[in-house]
């Protein structure tokens, strides 16, 4: 019984972490149809911002919930203005440019801070489930994932900015004729996506090894989730995270975490063969 609860918690935390690490990527992909290959580095910048702020004496909650997303969000806006905006309509070139950016960020961070691991400790304690010990940080991450999804839904559904964003997502040309400037919407989208990624990086900082190359450990899962989910930001992300998080954790429990990842990938490739536009391209077409 206790083991069932622990595995259940693992599944929940697997799904939650997929939602967190993929949300920013999904927002940018859903709106702009580009995959940001510097996604892992945005995560890393969020984690670094958190760690540096905490080491400078800032409260850890403020550091990971405010400083990390704001900093990476600003980085995102700067990147969009200085790089992405020149490549609109050239999807492949955009991906290549963001890949170059990812190398620049990894190299730059290594040059400034070196390869050493600077860590912060997990701010919450643990709790007992029968004979097993689990961290309170896991349910906290799940709550944050839930909060993030609710926030995205609320903004997209009930605010004017969300309305404009959905209009540009459906048809940028039509939105432009109605007086919306798609370029500005894209800039805001990229900034918002980067901020969400920064938040995820900040939340991961206490539980991950913070090194310049840490992004590579997360991007495989984030890419699979977004590609499997398709272009619908919210439902694609939730359905793909739910499916893949479940498969990944159960497979990891039965074999090893690495084979869990391999099985997750095989499942994703089969899914892509059946649904080439992702889950949302088939079942949630035109939804958020």
């Amino acid at each position: 019984m206790d083991i069932a609860i622990i595995v259940g918690l693992d599944v929940v935390s697997g799904i939650a972490s997929l939602v967190l690490i993929s949300a920013g990527l999904a927002v940018i992909f859903g709106m702009m149809k580009i995959i940001n290959l510097a996604h892992g580095e945005f995560l890393m910048l969020g984690a670094y911002a958190t760690v540096l702020a905490v080491n400078a004496g800032v409260n850890i909650w403020f550091a990971m919930l405010v400083i990390a997303p704001v900093f990476v969000g600003l980085v995102g806006v700067i990147v969009e203005r200085c790089l992405i905006q020149f490549l609109y309509g050239r999807l492949v070139d955009t991906m290549l440019a963001t890949w170059g950016l990812s190398l620049v960020i990894v190299g730059g961070t290594t040059m400034i801070f070196g390869n050493t691991i600077v860590g912060v400790s997990s701010p919450l304690g643990g709790f007992q489930v029968g004979a097993y010990q689990s961290s309170l940080y896991t349910p906290f991450l799940a709550l944050m994932a839930l909060f993030l999804m609710t926030a995205v839904f609320a903004v997209m559904r009930y605010t004017r900015a969300g309305l404009i964003a959905r209009a540009v997502m459906q048809n940028p040309d039509m939105a432009a004729t109605l007086g919306v400037n798609p370029a500005r919407v894209y800039m805001a989208t990229f900034g918002a996506g980067a901020a969400m990624t920064g938040l995820a990086g900040g939340l991961l900082a206490p539980v991950a090894g913070v090194v310049p190359t840490m992004g590579a450990a997360y991007i495989a899962k984030a890419f699979i989730t977004v590609v499997g989910g398709g272009t619908s930001v919210l439902w694609g992300l939730i359905s793909a995270s739910g499916l893949f998080g479940f498969i990944n954790q159960i497979a990891a429990f039965l074999t090893t975490p690495v084979f869990g990842e391999v099985i997750l990938f095989i499942a994703a490739v089969i899914l892509i063969r059946l649904l080439p536009t992702g889950i949302s391209g088939r079942f949630f077409k035109g939804r958020l």
């Binding site: 790089l83 290549l96 440019a97 170059g100 190398l103 620049v104 990894v106 190299g107 290594t110």
Partner: peptide, 13 residues
């Protein structure tokens, strides 16, 4: 990495 990334960006642009 820094140099390679910068080269890639310059060439793409």
């Amino acid at each position: 990495n820094f140099v390679l990334g910068a080269i890639l960006i310059v060439f793409v642009l």
